[in-house]
Write a protein that binds this DNA or RNA. Structure first.
Lengths: 126, 126
DNA sequence: CCGGATCCTTGAGGATACTG
DNA sequence: CAGTATCCTCAAGGATCCGG
Protein backbone atom coordinates (compact mmCIF):
# COMPACT_ATOMS: atom_id res chain seq x y z
CA UNK A 1 0.00 0.00 0.00
CA UNK A 2 1.27 3.38 -1.00
CA UNK A 3 0.73 6.25 1.40
CA UNK A 4 0.75 9.66 -0.13
CA UNK A 5 3.27 11.94 1.46
CA UNK A 6 2.12 15.52 1.85
CA UNK A 7 4.72 18.17 1.33
CA UNK A 8 5.27 20.42 4.29
CA UNK A 9 6.29 24.00 3.70
CA UNK A 10 7.99 24.46 7.05
CA UNK A 11 9.23 21.75 9.38
CA UNK A 12 6.73 19.02 8.84
CA UNK A 13 4.75 19.02 12.06
CA UNK A 14 1.23 17.88 11.43
CA UNK A 15 -0.45 20.27 13.81
CA UNK A 16 -2.94 20.67 11.03
CA UNK A 17 -4.94 17.68 12.17
CA UNK A 18 -6.94 18.63 15.21
CA UNK A 19 -6.96 15.05 16.44
CA UNK A 20 -3.27 14.26 16.07
CA UNK A 21 -1.09 13.67 19.10
CA UNK A 22 1.14 16.58 18.10
CA UNK A 23 -1.78 18.94 18.01
CA UNK A 24 -3.01 17.66 21.37
CA UNK A 25 0.36 18.29 22.97
CA UNK A 26 0.59 21.69 21.33
CA UNK A 27 -2.78 22.62 22.76
CA UNK A 28 -1.66 21.53 26.21
CA UNK A 29 1.49 23.58 26.06
CA UNK A 30 0.40 26.64 24.10
CA UNK A 31 -1.49 28.33 26.86
CA UNK A 32 -0.61 31.29 28.96
CA UNK A 33 -0.37 29.63 32.35
CA UNK A 34 1.69 26.66 31.23
CA UNK A 35 4.21 28.91 29.52
CA UNK A 36 4.40 31.31 32.43
CA UNK A 37 5.02 28.44 34.82
CA UNK A 38 7.78 27.06 32.64
CA UNK A 39 9.29 30.52 32.44
CA UNK A 40 9.04 30.98 36.20
CA UNK A 41 10.70 27.67 36.90
CA UNK A 42 13.72 28.40 34.77
CA UNK A 43 16.70 26.47 36.03
CA UNK A 44 15.46 26.52 39.60
CA UNK A 45 13.85 24.01 41.86
CA UNK A 46 10.86 25.61 43.48
CA UNK A 47 8.26 24.64 46.02
CA UNK A 48 4.59 24.98 45.24
CA UNK A 49 4.06 28.20 47.17
CA UNK A 50 7.22 29.80 45.93
CA UNK A 51 6.24 28.97 42.38
CA UNK A 52 2.83 30.47 43.02
CA UNK A 53 4.52 33.72 43.99
CA UNK A 54 6.63 33.56 40.85
CA UNK A 55 3.59 33.61 38.59
CA UNK A 56 1.56 36.64 39.50
CA UNK A 57 -2.17 36.28 39.20
CA UNK A 58 -2.28 32.51 39.06
CA UNK A 59 -4.72 30.80 41.38
CA UNK A 60 -4.00 27.84 43.57
CA UNK A 61 -6.19 25.71 41.38
CA UNK A 62 -4.68 26.77 38.04
CA UNK A 63 -1.17 26.20 39.30
CA UNK A 64 -2.05 22.78 40.64
CA UNK A 65 -3.89 21.78 37.48
CA UNK A 66 -1.19 22.97 35.10
CA UNK A 67 1.56 21.40 37.15
CA UNK A 68 -0.18 18.06 36.96
CA UNK A 69 -0.57 18.47 33.21
CA UNK A 70 3.08 19.40 32.78
CA UNK A 71 4.12 16.49 34.96
CA UNK A 72 1.97 14.13 32.93
CA UNK A 73 3.67 15.28 29.75
CA UNK A 74 7.06 14.85 31.35
CA UNK A 75 8.04 18.52 31.26
CA UNK A 76 8.16 18.98 34.99
CA UNK A 77 9.52 16.70 37.66
CA UNK A 78 7.74 16.59 40.99
CA UNK A 79 9.67 15.56 44.08
CA UNK A 80 7.85 14.87 47.31
CA UNK A 81 9.83 15.03 50.54
CA UNK A 82 8.23 12.83 53.19
CA UNK A 83 8.47 15.44 55.90
CA UNK A 84 5.82 17.07 57.95
CA UNK A 85 4.57 19.43 56.85
CA UNK A 86 5.11 18.02 53.36
CA UNK A 87 7.54 19.66 50.99
CA UNK A 88 7.16 19.34 47.25
CA UNK A 89 9.73 20.51 44.75
CA UNK A 90 9.20 21.25 41.09
CA UNK A 91 11.82 21.49 38.39
CA UNK A 92 11.95 21.33 34.62
CA UNK A 93 13.04 18.09 33.01
CA UNK A 94 15.34 18.07 30.00
CA UNK A 95 12.45 18.36 27.52
CA UNK A 96 10.99 21.05 29.72
CA UNK A 97 14.19 23.06 29.57
CA UNK A 98 14.30 22.63 25.82
CA UNK A 99 10.84 24.09 25.58
CA UNK A 100 11.81 26.90 27.89
CA UNK A 101 14.39 28.00 25.36
CA UNK A 102 11.69 28.71 22.83
CA UNK A 103 9.51 30.37 25.44
CA UNK A 104 12.45 32.63 26.21
CA UNK A 105 12.33 33.49 22.55
CA UNK A 106 8.71 34.51 22.84
CA UNK A 107 9.47 36.66 25.87
CA UNK A 108 12.32 38.35 24.09
CA UNK A 109 10.07 38.91 21.10
CA UNK A 110 7.45 40.52 23.31
CA UNK A 111 10.04 42.79 24.83
CA UNK A 112 11.49 43.77 21.48
CA UNK A 113 8.12 44.67 19.96
CA UNK A 114 6.47 46.39 22.88
CA UNK A 115 6.68 49.76 21.18
CA UNK A 116 5.46 48.65 17.81
CA UNK A 117 2.53 46.80 19.34
CA UNK A 118 1.50 49.61 21.62
CA UNK A 119 1.52 52.02 18.69
CA UNK A 120 -0.41 49.61 16.52
CA UNK A 121 -3.01 49.24 19.23
CA UNK A 122 -3.53 52.96 19.52
CA UNK A 123 -3.91 53.26 15.78
CA UNK A 124 -6.40 50.42 15.74
CA UNK A 125 -8.42 51.63 18.71
CA UNK A 126 -8.74 55.10 17.31
CA UNK B 1 15.41 58.22 44.99
CA UNK B 2 17.04 54.88 44.52
CA UNK B 3 15.07 52.20 42.78
CA UNK B 4 16.09 48.70 43.56
CA UNK B 5 16.95 46.76 40.47
CA UNK B 6 15.80 43.18 40.54
CA UNK B 7 18.15 40.73 38.96
CA UNK B 8 16.69 38.78 36.11
CA UNK B 9 17.94 35.29 35.51
CA UNK B 10 16.98 35.23 31.85
CA UNK B 11 16.30 38.13 29.56
CA UNK B 12 14.64 40.67 31.77
CA UNK B 13 11.06 40.68 30.56
CA UNK B 14 8.71 41.70 33.31
CA UNK B 15 6.01 39.21 32.56
CA UNK B 16 5.88 38.73 36.30
CA UNK B 17 3.45 41.61 36.78
CA UNK B 18 0.02 40.56 35.67
CA UNK B 19 -0.91 44.13 34.81
CA UNK B 20 2.13 45.07 32.73
CA UNK B 21 1.81 45.69 29.02
CA UNK B 22 4.26 42.90 28.28
CA UNK B 23 2.19 40.42 30.21
CA UNK B 24 -0.95 41.59 28.47
CA UNK B 25 0.60 41.06 25.04
CA UNK B 26 1.97 37.71 26.09
CA UNK B 27 -1.48 36.62 27.20
CA UNK B 28 -2.91 37.68 23.86
CA UNK B 29 -0.34 35.79 21.89
CA UNK B 30 0.24 32.72 24.05
CA UNK B 31 -2.91 30.90 23.15
CA UNK B 32 -3.49 27.95 20.92
CA UNK B 33 -5.59 29.57 18.21
CA UNK B 34 -3.42 32.64 17.77
CA UNK B 35 -0.30 30.53 17.40
CA UNK B 36 -1.94 28.10 15.01
CA UNK B 37 -3.14 30.96 12.84
CA UNK B 38 0.32 32.48 12.73
CA UNK B 39 1.74 29.10 11.84
CA UNK B 40 -0.88 28.58 9.13
CA UNK B 41 -0.20 31.95 7.59
CA UNK B 42 3.50 31.37 7.25
CA UNK B 43 4.88 33.40 4.37
CA UNK B 44 1.63 33.25 2.47
CA UNK B 45 -1.18 35.66 1.83
CA UNK B 46 -4.45 33.92 2.50
CA UNK B 47 -8.10 34.73 2.30
CA UNK B 48 -10.38 34.25 5.24
CA UNK B 49 -11.90 30.99 4.09
CA UNK B 50 -8.61 29.55 2.95
CA UNK B 51 -7.10 30.38 6.30
CA UNK B 52 -10.02 28.72 7.99
CA UNK B 53 -9.25 25.53 6.10
CA UNK B 54 -5.61 25.82 7.13
CA UNK B 55 -6.44 25.69 10.80
CA UNK B 56 -8.44 22.56 11.38
CA UNK B 57 -11.07 22.74 14.05
CA UNK B 58 -11.26 26.52 14.29
CA UNK B 59 -14.69 28.07 14.11
CA UNK B 60 -15.66 31.05 12.03
CA UNK B 61 -16.01 33.13 15.15
CA UNK B 62 -12.68 32.17 16.72
CA UNK B 63 -10.83 32.88 13.50
CA UNK B 64 -12.51 36.24 13.11
CA UNK B 65 -11.90 37.18 16.72
CA UNK B 66 -8.26 36.14 16.76
CA UNK B 67 -7.57 37.82 13.44
CA UNK B 68 -8.89 41.08 14.77
CA UNK B 69 -6.75 40.70 17.86
CA UNK B 70 -3.65 39.94 15.81
CA UNK B 71 -4.39 42.85 13.53
CA UNK B 72 -4.81 45.15 16.51
CA UNK B 73 -1.42 44.12 17.81
CA UNK B 74 0.12 44.67 14.40
CA UNK B 75 1.08 41.04 13.77
CA UNK B 76 -1.24 40.55 10.85
CA UNK B 77 -2.03 42.84 7.97
CA UNK B 78 -5.53 42.86 6.58
CA UNK B 79 -6.09 43.92 2.99
CA UNK B 80 -9.60 44.50 1.71
CA UNK B 81 -10.18 44.39 -2.03
CA UNK B 82 -13.19 46.48 -2.97
CA UNK B 83 -14.64 43.85 -5.26
CA UNK B 84 -17.92 42.08 -5.14
CA UNK B 85 -18.08 39.66 -3.56
CA UNK B 86 -15.48 41.13 -1.21
CA UNK B 87 -12.05 39.63 -0.97
CA UNK B 88 -9.91 40.00 2.14
CA UNK B 89 -6.30 38.95 2.35
CA UNK B 90 -4.31 38.26 5.47
CA UNK B 91 -0.57 38.14 5.82
CA UNK B 92 1.96 38.35 8.62
CA UNK B 93 3.71 41.64 9.19
CA UNK B 94 7.41 41.82 9.97
CA UNK B 95 6.84 41.45 13.74
CA UNK B 96 4.40 38.67 12.97
CA UNK B 97 7.01 36.79 10.97
CA UNK B 98 9.51 37.27 13.77
CA UNK B 99 7.10 35.68 16.17
CA UNK B 100 6.46 32.89 13.74
CA UNK B 101 10.10 31.94 13.97
CA UNK B 102 9.73 31.15 17.66
CA UNK B 103 6.44 29.36 17.04
CA UNK B 104 8.27 27.23 14.52
CA UNK B 105 10.59 26.41 17.38
CA UNK B 106 7.68 25.24 19.48
CA UNK B 107 6.40 23.08 16.65
CA UNK B 108 9.79 21.53 16.13
CA UNK B 109 10.04 20.92 19.87
CA UNK B 110 6.67 19.17 19.85
CA UNK B 111 7.75 16.98 16.99
CA UNK B 112 11.07 16.12 18.59
CA UNK B 113 9.55 15.11 21.92
CA UNK B 114 6.46 13.27 20.76
CA UNK B 115 7.85 9.94 21.85
CA UNK B 116 9.06 11.06 25.23
CA UNK B 117 5.79 12.75 25.99
CA UNK B 118 3.63 9.87 24.88
CA UNK B 119 5.65 7.52 27.06
CA UNK B 120 5.49 9.88 30.00
CA UNK B 121 1.75 10.09 29.64
CA UNK B 122 1.32 6.34 29.68
CA UNK B 123 3.46 6.09 32.77
CA UNK B 124 1.47 8.82 34.46
CA UNK B 125 -1.94 7.50 33.50
CA UNK B 126 -1.12 4.02 34.72
C1' DC C 1 2.42 22.82 53.16
C1' DC C 2 0.37 20.46 49.46
C1' DG C 3 -3.51 19.70 46.74
C1' DG C 4 -7.92 17.40 45.90
C1' DA C 5 -13.13 18.18 46.07
C1' DT C 6 -17.03 21.16 45.81
C1' DC C 7 -19.74 24.92 44.64
C1' DC C 8 -20.60 28.80 41.94
C1' DT C 9 -19.81 32.43 38.51
C1' DT C 10 -18.25 34.10 34.36
C1' DG C 11 -16.76 34.00 29.88
C1' DA C 12 -15.03 31.07 25.97
C1' DG C 13 -16.67 29.36 22.21
C1' DG C 14 -20.23 26.98 18.82
C1' DA C 15 -24.41 27.51 15.78
C1' DT C 16 -27.19 30.39 13.36
C1' DA C 17 -28.85 34.31 11.01
C1' DC C 18 -28.32 38.80 9.04
C1' DT C 19 -25.75 42.98 6.64
C1' DG C 20 -22.53 44.87 3.08
C1' DC D 1 -17.26 36.09 0.77
C1' DA D 2 -16.40 38.47 4.96
C1' DG D 3 -17.80 39.67 9.34
C1' DT D 4 -20.81 41.01 13.24
C1' DA D 5 -24.45 40.04 16.48
C1' DT D 6 -27.36 36.99 19.11
C1' DC D 7 -28.36 33.23 21.69
C1' DC D 8 -27.10 29.27 24.20
C1' DT D 9 -24.21 25.85 26.40
C1' DC D 10 -20.58 24.09 28.92
C1' DA D 11 -16.18 24.22 30.73
C1' DA D 12 -12.53 27.37 32.59
C1' DG D 13 -11.47 29.21 36.51
C1' DG D 14 -12.01 31.51 41.45
C1' DA D 15 -13.11 30.84 46.48
C1' DT D 16 -13.38 27.85 50.07
C1' DC D 17 -12.97 23.80 52.85
C1' DC D 18 -11.08 19.57 54.24
C1' DG D 19 -7.99 15.79 54.47
C1' DG D 20 -2.94 13.78 54.30
Amino acid sequence: MVTKQLKDTSDGVDLRRADSLAREIFSDVANKWALLIIEALGDDTLRFTRLRDGVEGISHKMLSQNLRMLERNGLVERTVHPTVPPRVDYALTEPGRALRATVDGMCAWTQRHLGHIEASRQRFDG
